[in-house]
Design a protein around this nucleic acid. Structure first.
Lengths: 144, 144
DNA sequence: TTTACTGCAAACGGTTTGCAAAAGG
DNA sequence: CCTTTTGCAAACCGTTTGCAGTAAA
Protein backbone atom coordinates (compact mmCIF):
# COMPACT_ATOMS: atom_id res chain seq x y z
CA UNK A 1 0.00 0.00 0.00
CA UNK A 2 1.10 3.54 -0.75
CA UNK A 3 0.65 4.66 2.84
CA UNK A 4 3.52 2.45 3.92
CA UNK A 5 5.79 3.96 1.34
CA UNK A 6 5.32 7.38 2.80
CA UNK A 7 5.79 6.03 6.27
CA UNK A 8 9.13 4.61 5.28
CA UNK A 9 10.18 7.76 3.46
CA UNK A 10 9.45 9.86 6.52
CA UNK A 11 11.18 7.45 8.82
CA UNK A 12 14.32 7.43 6.74
CA UNK A 13 14.43 11.20 6.92
CA UNK A 14 14.15 11.14 10.68
CA UNK A 15 10.63 12.52 10.65
CA UNK A 16 7.71 11.28 12.65
CA UNK A 17 4.88 9.81 10.68
CA UNK A 18 1.80 11.85 11.43
CA UNK A 19 -1.51 11.65 9.65
CA UNK A 20 -1.07 15.18 8.29
CA UNK A 21 2.41 14.56 6.99
CA UNK A 22 1.74 11.40 5.11
CA UNK A 23 -1.44 12.94 3.73
CA UNK A 24 0.53 15.94 2.47
CA UNK A 25 3.15 13.70 0.91
CA UNK A 26 0.40 11.78 -0.80
CA UNK A 27 -1.22 14.95 -2.10
CA UNK A 28 2.09 16.06 -3.54
CA UNK A 29 2.77 12.68 -5.02
CA UNK A 30 -0.61 12.50 -6.72
CA UNK A 31 -0.54 16.02 -8.08
CA UNK A 32 0.63 16.42 -11.64
CA UNK A 33 1.35 20.08 -11.06
CA UNK A 34 3.18 21.97 -8.37
CA UNK A 35 0.80 23.24 -5.69
CA UNK A 36 0.69 26.10 -3.21
CA UNK A 37 0.46 25.70 0.54
CA UNK A 38 -3.13 26.85 0.40
CA UNK A 39 -4.06 24.30 -2.24
CA UNK A 40 -2.62 21.59 -0.01
CA UNK A 41 -4.56 23.03 2.91
CA UNK A 42 -7.83 22.89 0.98
CA UNK A 43 -7.13 19.45 -0.35
CA UNK A 44 -6.61 18.22 3.20
CA UNK A 45 -9.95 19.68 4.15
CA UNK A 46 -11.57 17.75 1.30
CA UNK A 47 -10.07 14.60 2.71
CA UNK A 48 -11.49 15.42 6.16
CA UNK A 49 -7.99 15.77 7.53
CA UNK A 50 -8.16 19.37 8.59
CA UNK A 51 -4.82 20.74 9.58
CA UNK A 52 -3.80 24.25 10.48
CA UNK A 53 -2.42 26.32 7.64
CA UNK A 54 0.75 27.02 9.57
CA UNK A 55 1.26 23.32 10.01
CA UNK A 56 0.95 22.91 6.28
CA UNK A 57 3.62 25.55 5.76
CA UNK A 58 5.87 23.95 8.33
CA UNK A 59 5.39 20.51 6.89
CA UNK A 60 6.08 21.61 3.33
CA UNK A 61 9.19 23.42 4.47
CA UNK A 62 10.38 20.33 6.35
CA UNK A 63 9.70 18.05 3.40
CA UNK A 64 11.68 20.40 1.18
CA UNK A 65 14.59 20.43 3.64
CA UNK A 66 14.63 16.66 3.70
CA UNK A 67 14.48 16.60 -0.09
CA UNK A 68 11.17 14.78 -0.14
CA UNK A 69 9.62 17.77 -1.86
CA UNK A 70 10.87 20.61 -4.02
CA UNK A 71 10.02 24.23 -3.42
CA UNK A 72 9.60 26.33 -6.54
CA UNK A 73 9.29 30.01 -7.23
CA UNK A 74 7.46 30.48 -10.47
CA UNK A 75 7.97 33.96 -11.82
CA UNK A 76 4.99 36.27 -11.63
CA UNK A 77 3.42 34.56 -8.64
CA UNK A 78 4.44 35.64 -5.18
CA UNK A 79 3.43 32.33 -3.66
CA UNK A 80 5.78 29.42 -3.23
CA UNK A 81 4.87 26.19 -4.97
CA UNK A 82 5.73 22.67 -3.91
CA UNK A 83 5.94 19.39 -5.71
CA UNK A 84 6.87 15.84 -4.90
CA UNK A 85 10.58 15.30 -5.44
CA UNK A 86 10.71 12.73 -8.18
CA UNK A 87 14.49 13.01 -8.31
CA UNK A 88 14.52 13.96 -11.93
CA UNK A 89 15.99 17.24 -13.03
CA UNK A 90 13.11 19.19 -14.49
CA UNK A 91 12.01 22.43 -15.99
CA UNK A 92 8.61 23.99 -16.35
CA UNK A 93 6.52 25.34 -19.13
CA UNK A 94 4.04 27.87 -17.78
CA UNK A 95 0.97 29.13 -19.61
CA UNK A 96 0.79 32.89 -19.22
CA UNK A 97 -2.97 32.81 -19.66
CA UNK A 98 -4.34 29.96 -17.56
CA UNK A 99 -1.22 29.51 -15.36
CA UNK A 100 -1.08 25.81 -16.08
CA UNK A 101 2.35 24.37 -15.34
CA UNK A 102 3.74 21.55 -17.46
CA UNK A 103 6.87 19.79 -16.25
CA UNK A 104 9.40 19.10 -18.98
CA UNK A 105 12.16 16.62 -18.54
CA UNK A 106 14.79 17.48 -21.10
CA UNK A 107 17.43 19.92 -19.89
CA UNK A 108 19.28 21.87 -22.58
CA UNK A 109 21.98 23.45 -20.47
CA UNK A 110 24.29 20.90 -18.95
CA UNK A 111 27.14 21.82 -21.26
CA UNK A 112 26.48 25.48 -20.85
CA UNK A 113 27.24 25.20 -17.16
CA UNK A 114 30.72 23.91 -17.90
CA UNK A 115 31.44 26.76 -20.27
CA UNK A 116 30.18 29.18 -17.69
CA UNK A 117 32.39 27.73 -14.96
CA UNK A 118 35.43 28.21 -17.11
CA UNK A 119 34.49 31.73 -18.09
CA UNK A 120 33.45 33.02 -14.69
CA UNK A 121 35.37 30.83 -12.25
CA UNK A 122 32.12 30.30 -10.40
CA UNK A 123 31.50 26.87 -8.90
CA UNK A 124 28.10 26.15 -10.43
CA UNK A 125 25.65 24.43 -8.12
CA UNK A 126 22.49 24.41 -10.18
CA UNK A 127 20.12 26.36 -12.30
CA UNK A 128 16.54 27.31 -12.76
CA UNK A 129 14.88 27.46 -16.14
CA UNK A 130 11.25 28.20 -16.75
CA UNK A 131 9.72 28.70 -20.15
CA UNK A 132 6.64 30.85 -20.66
CA UNK A 133 4.06 30.83 -23.40
CA UNK A 134 0.49 30.04 -24.30
CA UNK A 135 -0.94 26.56 -24.18
CA UNK A 136 -2.95 25.18 -27.12
CA UNK A 137 -6.28 25.79 -25.35
CA UNK A 138 -5.50 29.39 -24.57
CA UNK A 139 -4.20 30.10 -28.06
CA UNK A 140 -7.62 29.18 -29.36
CA UNK A 141 -9.49 31.20 -26.79
CA UNK A 142 -7.43 34.27 -27.55
CA UNK A 143 -8.03 34.08 -31.30
CA UNK A 144 -11.80 34.04 -30.91
CA UNK B 1 23.42 65.28 -21.00
CA UNK B 2 22.01 62.06 -19.58
CA UNK B 3 19.14 63.78 -17.84
CA UNK B 4 17.63 64.70 -21.20
CA UNK B 5 17.77 61.14 -22.35
CA UNK B 6 15.60 60.06 -19.49
CA UNK B 7 13.27 62.94 -20.11
CA UNK B 8 12.82 61.80 -23.66
CA UNK B 9 12.41 58.15 -22.69
CA UNK B 10 9.69 59.04 -20.25
CA UNK B 11 7.96 61.32 -22.68
CA UNK B 12 7.89 58.67 -25.38
CA UNK B 13 6.24 56.29 -22.96
CA UNK B 14 3.57 58.85 -22.14
CA UNK B 15 4.89 59.42 -18.64
CA UNK B 16 5.38 62.74 -16.97
CA UNK B 17 8.95 63.63 -16.19
CA UNK B 18 9.21 64.10 -12.46
CA UNK B 19 12.37 64.53 -10.47
CA UNK B 20 11.83 61.21 -8.73
CA UNK B 21 11.21 59.30 -11.93
CA UNK B 22 14.21 60.43 -13.84
CA UNK B 23 16.35 59.93 -10.74
CA UNK B 24 15.09 56.36 -10.44
CA UNK B 25 15.75 55.69 -14.10
CA UNK B 26 19.25 57.03 -13.64
CA UNK B 27 19.85 54.85 -10.59
CA UNK B 28 18.76 51.80 -12.56
CA UNK B 29 20.85 52.78 -15.53
CA UNK B 30 23.97 53.25 -13.43
CA UNK B 31 23.57 50.09 -11.41
CA UNK B 32 25.50 47.07 -12.61
CA UNK B 33 23.28 44.78 -10.64
CA UNK B 34 19.53 44.47 -10.28
CA UNK B 35 18.27 46.37 -7.24
CA UNK B 36 15.34 46.12 -4.85
CA UNK B 37 12.77 48.86 -4.30
CA UNK B 38 14.33 49.56 -0.95
CA UNK B 39 17.81 49.95 -2.40
CA UNK B 40 16.42 52.49 -4.85
CA UNK B 41 14.67 54.24 -1.99
CA UNK B 42 17.92 54.52 0.00
CA UNK B 43 19.90 55.60 -3.02
CA UNK B 44 17.42 58.40 -3.58
CA UNK B 45 17.91 59.50 0.00
CA UNK B 46 21.66 59.63 -0.57
CA UNK B 47 21.03 61.92 -3.47
CA UNK B 48 18.85 64.19 -1.32
CA UNK B 49 15.82 63.31 -3.42
CA UNK B 50 13.73 61.72 -0.73
CA UNK B 51 10.68 60.01 -2.11
CA UNK B 52 8.12 57.89 -0.39
CA UNK B 53 8.70 54.16 -0.53
CA UNK B 54 5.28 53.58 -2.06
CA UNK B 55 6.14 56.05 -4.80
CA UNK B 56 9.26 54.06 -5.50
CA UNK B 57 7.21 50.89 -5.80
CA UNK B 58 4.71 52.61 -8.05
CA UNK B 59 7.42 54.10 -10.22
CA UNK B 60 9.30 50.85 -10.63
CA UNK B 61 6.09 49.08 -11.53
CA UNK B 62 5.26 51.74 -14.10
CA UNK B 63 8.73 51.64 -15.61
CA UNK B 64 8.45 47.87 -15.91
CA UNK B 65 5.05 48.17 -17.60
CA UNK B 66 6.46 50.61 -20.11
CA UNK B 67 9.40 48.32 -20.68
CA UNK B 68 11.90 50.88 -19.46
CA UNK B 69 12.85 48.53 -16.66
CA UNK B 70 12.73 44.80 -16.08
CA UNK B 71 11.32 43.18 -12.99
CA UNK B 72 13.10 40.04 -11.82
CA UNK B 73 12.34 37.35 -9.30
CA UNK B 74 15.56 35.83 -8.15
CA UNK B 75 14.98 32.50 -6.47
CA UNK B 76 15.40 32.41 -2.73
CA UNK B 77 14.66 36.08 -2.18
CA UNK B 78 11.09 37.15 -1.63
CA UNK B 79 11.79 40.67 -2.84
CA UNK B 80 11.38 41.78 -6.43
CA UNK B 81 14.43 43.16 -8.17
CA UNK B 82 14.54 45.72 -10.94
CA UNK B 83 17.07 46.64 -13.55
CA UNK B 84 17.35 49.04 -16.43
CA UNK B 85 16.03 47.45 -19.59
CA UNK B 86 19.06 47.33 -21.84
CA UNK B 87 17.12 45.45 -24.46
CA UNK B 88 19.52 42.58 -24.49
CA UNK B 89 18.34 39.13 -23.63
CA UNK B 90 20.16 38.19 -20.45
CA UNK B 91 20.54 35.59 -17.79
CA UNK B 92 21.94 35.77 -14.31
CA UNK B 93 24.58 33.99 -12.35
CA UNK B 94 23.82 34.29 -8.65
CA UNK B 95 26.27 33.58 -5.83
CA UNK B 96 24.50 31.49 -3.21
CA UNK B 97 26.84 32.80 -0.53
CA UNK B 98 27.16 36.57 -1.00
CA UNK B 99 24.09 36.98 -3.25
CA UNK B 100 26.07 38.84 -5.87
CA UNK B 101 24.31 38.81 -9.25
CA UNK B 102 26.33 38.67 -12.46
CA UNK B 103 24.50 39.29 -15.72
CA UNK B 104 25.50 36.92 -18.50
CA UNK B 105 24.75 37.65 -22.11
CA UNK B 106 24.96 34.36 -23.90
CA UNK B 107 21.70 32.44 -24.10
CA UNK B 108 21.96 28.69 -24.64
CA UNK B 109 18.33 27.91 -25.32
CA UNK B 110 17.06 29.56 -28.45
CA UNK B 111 16.91 26.31 -30.34
CA UNK B 112 15.44 24.52 -27.43
CA UNK B 113 12.40 26.77 -27.61
CA UNK B 114 11.69 25.67 -31.13
CA UNK B 115 11.91 22.01 -30.23
CA UNK B 116 9.62 22.66 -27.32
CA UNK B 117 7.03 24.44 -29.45
CA UNK B 118 6.86 21.45 -31.76
CA UNK B 119 6.62 18.97 -28.94
CA UNK B 120 4.10 20.77 -26.77
CA UNK B 121 2.17 22.94 -29.24
CA UNK B 122 2.68 25.83 -26.85
CA UNK B 123 3.33 29.24 -28.36
CA UNK B 124 6.52 30.13 -26.52
CA UNK B 125 6.78 33.74 -25.44
CA UNK B 126 9.99 33.73 -23.44
CA UNK B 127 11.97 32.08 -20.74
CA UNK B 128 13.80 32.70 -17.55
CA UNK B 129 17.10 31.09 -16.72
CA UNK B 130 19.14 31.74 -13.63
CA UNK B 131 22.27 29.86 -12.71
CA UNK B 132 23.36 29.43 -9.11
CA UNK B 133 26.74 28.75 -7.64
CA UNK B 134 29.63 30.15 -5.63
CA UNK B 135 31.74 33.06 -6.80
CA UNK B 136 35.57 32.90 -6.68
CA UNK B 137 35.72 35.03 -3.50
CA UNK B 138 33.25 32.89 -1.64
CA UNK B 139 34.87 29.63 -2.73
CA UNK B 140 38.02 30.80 -0.97
CA UNK B 141 36.22 31.95 2.15
CA UNK B 142 34.44 28.64 2.46
CA UNK B 143 37.61 26.55 2.17
CA UNK B 144 39.32 28.34 5.06
C1' DT C 1 9.01 9.76 28.96
C1' DT C 2 11.28 12.35 25.85
C1' DT C 3 11.22 14.71 21.77
C1' DA C 4 8.91 16.00 17.73
C1' DC C 5 4.82 17.90 16.11
C1' DT C 6 0.61 20.77 16.13
C1' DG C 7 -2.94 24.59 16.76
C1' DC C 8 -3.69 29.13 17.72
C1' DA C 9 -3.07 33.86 17.52
C1' DA C 10 -0.16 37.28 16.76
C1' DA C 11 3.63 39.27 14.14
C1' DC C 12 6.16 39.73 10.07
C1' DG C 13 8.06 41.78 5.55
C1' DG C 14 7.34 43.16 1.14
C1' DT C 15 3.97 45.26 -1.49
C1' DT C 16 -0.45 47.60 -2.67
C1' DT C 17 -4.22 50.80 -2.00
C1' DG C 18 -7.56 54.90 -1.18
C1' DC C 19 -7.60 59.38 -0.69
C1' DA C 20 -6.52 64.20 -0.68
C1' DA C 21 -2.86 67.33 -1.84
C1' DA C 22 0.74 68.72 -5.21
C1' DA C 23 2.87 69.15 -9.52
C1' DG C 24 3.45 68.37 -14.63
C1' DG C 25 2.08 69.66 -19.41
C1' DC D 1 -6.89 73.88 -16.05
C1' DC D 2 -7.02 68.83 -16.36
C1' DT D 3 -4.62 64.73 -15.57
C1' DT D 4 -0.82 62.36 -13.41
C1' DT D 5 1.79 61.74 -9.80
C1' DT D 6 2.79 61.87 -4.94
C1' DG D 7 2.78 61.29 0.33
C1' DC D 8 0.70 59.31 3.99
C1' DA D 9 -1.37 55.81 6.60
C1' DA D 10 -3.67 51.84 6.53
C1' DA D 11 -4.56 47.48 4.49
C1' DC D 12 -2.96 43.51 2.25
C1' DC D 13 -1.30 38.70 1.60
C1' DG D 14 1.71 35.01 1.94
C1' DT D 15 4.51 33.37 5.35
C1' DT D 16 6.76 32.81 9.98
C1' DT D 17 6.98 32.57 14.98
C1' DG D 18 6.35 31.81 20.21
C1' DC D 19 4.14 29.23 23.11
C1' DA D 20 1.50 25.86 25.40
C1' DG D 21 -0.66 21.54 24.57
C1' DT D 22 -0.65 16.85 22.08
C1' DA D 23 0.94 12.88 19.97
C1' DA D 24 4.64 9.72 18.14
C1' DA D 25 8.50 6.67 19.25
Amino acid sequence: MKQDNFDELLRRSGLKNTKTRSAILEILEKSEQPVTAEQVFLELKNKQISANLSTVYRTLETLAEKMLAKKLNISGDSRAMFEYNRLVHRHYLVCLECKKIIPIDFCPIKNYEKTLEEKTKFKIAGHKLDVYGYCPDCQNKIQE
